[in-house]
Design a protein around this nucleic acid. Structure first.
Lengths: 348, 348
DNA sequence: ATGAAAGCGCTAACAT
DNA sequence: ATGTTAGCGCTTTCAT
């Protein structure tokens, strides 16, 4: 089946040359060719020149797959993602691929739509012998985590907990972010405070909400209303806000949304459909600080996740784990920042 | 360097088992194990059972890298991307990875920031022996295209021309899209019509602009003003609109922007900073139809690229090319649709 | 500095 | 149906 053409006879198509071909043409051993491509391979200038001439003449290109087989290392990192269209995650992936490339790694993307799909995707990643895994928007079952550990593949969970005992973790302090928002809203004098949740099962949602609600309570406030978008997207945020604001109960004077997309949906519903004045009649605060949050049409107050730091840290942790497979589980927490903009009232 | 543990002795960490290990445990030949993992491999139920028992006991997982080496096929598609953060492209990548996975392929992402970087990224893709390449947001030099052809790696250029004689092409009819906008604006009675360009060197920009301007001229109109954002993003669009609308010359009454992000930047500048009424005083039309274009805060009239069709077609073309490497260059053109929304006046 | 040879884990052709 | 054998293209000893 492989339509492979070998040998020295000049044939025009689909010809992949190997080091044997190069060696033959250069009049050296195949090992010499290999050394010419090995950093630190000891080779005389003369032979190296001969090799390179032959390489150029044939248009030879090393076969990374073969190298990966013998070195038991692919220089590929598996990136498991979901919710791709959320700008926050899109930007993440962009950064991950970019920074990884700078470090000489390539990114194999595993796109999981349903929760269960990670059970298929992850074994594939292991079969491809990736050197490491970054998991965003999914949680490894402990069985999967064990398999990764057994095969010596380090895993970094990005922006979520992992209690499997093997995965490293890098995440934003979502709990603290929730607290910040509670303080901001209380300080601004709000009294009927609501929360719109994102994906209920996600640890990001749980932490943001818990931090938020606990802090409200600490300061003698209760959560007045709660609604759930179910997903982290605009449309679901819009719909959730609709349920929240048209529920018949007295309208809240502030809403904390689990992320920016939800907040923008809520904001649009409130001002475009219901004609509510933002922030005079209603404050809205999001989470992430995606680019659109800063656009003049939204001016969304939000909790910024410092994603450059998150990405760099994640990759650093992964690289450390790759080079020291025996290391203990590493956990890095990054602190978010509240970004004040026009969608919320300020302290009087 | 590879810390590999072999053999039958039960050792706990980093143990990757091979078919030899499985065979030994199952009391069959190594080839039998291979056959157990080969779709049409002939094997008795008895041996298959023995193999599977051993597989399970050891936690054996096939090594795809080794298979790729012998089969000369990786089941990996290289995806070359740029401008990741543009929602249109983010959505594309999401779709590409999803659909490719459905077909049993995995996506290796090559993120190129600078134009020149494709000269490094593409050879790497070839070294990884990808089964095919999808190029978005970049143009292959004919030298690179030749190398792909020589190595038998099919290439599909996504949303851009390729005149290299090898690359297949799937793109939206940007020229026609430009014409549609010209008609829409003229029909609505606009007389001072402007254009804000995206990345000047991109074929998408060139085609949209050419189609637009030609059609204006056909109908006896001239382009009143032209400004360039230089990039396809919001900030550059905002800045370009600022130059355009504050240039001192009489203000245009309509602007066609090379894509939605630029249009949203222009729209925000016009109404938030300059207080211009949209669309009463100024019509704005974009291109792409990203999700945000439909949000109530923007209601952006735009030319929709049917991206589901674009992606499906691209992958279909690529699959065909993979299975018939000798095929002629394929070119598929997809027609866009004008989506009317509130940011532009309608025919009176 | 260089070549010869072993072997990475697998598939596939060739026996039987 | 199953085992034997020969590679795939490469790195890496081990000699020299």
């Amino acid at each position: 089946m492989p339509a492979k053409k070998r040998g020295t006879t000049s044939s025009s198509k689909s010809a992949d040359f190997s080091q044997v071909d190069v060696a033959r043409l250069a009049g050296v051993s195949q090992a010499a060719v290999s050394r010419a491509f090995t950093p630190g391979g000891s080779l005389s200038d003369d032979t190296r020149a001969k090799v390179m001439a032959a390489v150029k003449q044939l248009g030879y290109r090393p076969n990374v797959i073969a190298r990966s087989l013998v070195q038991n290392s692919t220089n590929i990192i598996g990136l498991v993602v979901k919710r791709f269209t959320n700008p926050f995650y899109a930007q993440m992936i962009q950064e991950f691929t970019r920074v990884l490339q700078e470090q000489g790694y390539w990114t194999l993307v595993f796109n999981i739509a349903e929760k269960q799909e990670i059970e298929e995707a992850l074994p594939m990643a292991l079969q491809y012998r990736v050197d490491g895994l970054i998991i965003t928007s999914a949680t490894l079952s402990s069985k999967l985590a064990d398999e990764c550990a057994r095969s010596g593949t380090p895993v970094v969970s990005f922006n979520r907990y992992a209690t499997d005992g093997h995965s490293h973790m890098v995440y934003c302090d979502n709990f603290e972010g929730g607290r910040m928002v509670a303080d901001a809203l209380i300080d601004a004098g709000h009294t009927r405070i609501a929360y719109i949740a994102g994906e209920e099962s996600s640890s990001t949602n749980r932490d943001r909400e818990t931090g938020f609600v606990r802090r409200l309570e600490e300061r003698g406030h209760a959560l007045a209303l709660r609604e759930s978008a179910g997903e982290y997207d605009y449309e679901m945020g819009y719909a959730a806000a609709e349920r929240l604001l048209l529920s018949g109960t007295p309208r809240p004077d502030a809403i904390f949304c689990a992320n920016d997309l939800i907040a923008m949906g809520a904001l649009d519903l409130a001002r475009c459909k219901l004609g509510i004045k933002i922030p005079a009649e209603l404050s809205i605060i999001g989470f992430d600080d995606i680019p659109a949050a800063g656009w003049p049409s939204y001016e969304l107050t939000t909790v910024r996740q410092p994603f450059g730091i998150l990405v760099d840290t994640t990759i650093q942790v992964l690289m450390d784990a790759i080079h020291d497979p025996e290391s203990e589980v590493i956990k890095k927490v990054v602190t978010p920042t509240l970004i004040w903009r026009g969608s919320s009232r300020r302290k009087e």
